[in-house]
């Protein structure tokens, strides 16, 4: 316990200072969420590069929870889905059902090039298509993988904080 407290004191604050607040870009449907967006992450067939970036977005350095975004464990608790990867055949139905399970109003963030346009996996035999082809997408974040700053900016666009 003492070691832990000393460690906390010694380490201090590691989170980066928040950059300038980006312009409001939330879709109309999500405006009423009032600065707090609960996110459910769905890996629709990603190479896990985007997952690493998401992990660092919600880690101590970028700390996206400062801006009102939070990862949750069930679509029933969520306001929006964060979908990564091209939608594979195995995940197509699961993605549809997850989308149906989110209570309205709801949004979808397609995170990474694969989610936007299948990236390097375009035309592969197991790929159904981009996220847009399966569920309606509200926000897209480009990059392979997108940098944490870009993800944070997109999330702040949703939360408006």
């Amino acid at each position: 316990m003492k070691d832990l407290l000393r460690k906390i004191r010694k380490t201090g604050r590691v989170a980066e200072d928040p950059p300038e607040r980006p312009a409001e870009s939330a879709p109309d449907a999500l405006r009423e969420l009032g600065g707090s967006v609960q996110l459910r992450h769905v890996d629709a067939g990603s190479c896990n590069g985007c997952e690493v970036e998401i992990a660092s977005v919600f880690g101590p350095v970028y700390d996206a929870e400062r801006y009102g975004a939070r990862l949750v464990a069930s679509p029933r608790h969520a306001d929006a889905l964060v979908v990564t990867g091209p939608v594979t055949r195995n995940m197509e139905m699961a993605l549809r059902r997850t989308y149906e399970a989110v209570p309205a109003p709801k949004g979808v963030i397609a995170l990474g090039d694969c989610a936007r346009n299948c990236g390097v996996f375009a035309g592969a035999y197991g790929v159904v298509g981009a996220v847009r082809d399966v569920v309606p997408v509200d926000v897209e974040v480009p990059g392979c993988p997108p940098e944490p700053e870009a993800i944070v900016a997109a999330l702040r666009g949703l939360t408006g904080r």
Binding site: R76, M93, R97, E100
Partner: peptide, 12 residues
Amino acid sequence: RRRARLWDCGMG
């Protein structure tokens, strides 16, 4: 009231 499918992790 919305009738929704029982949440079964999307696979069921």
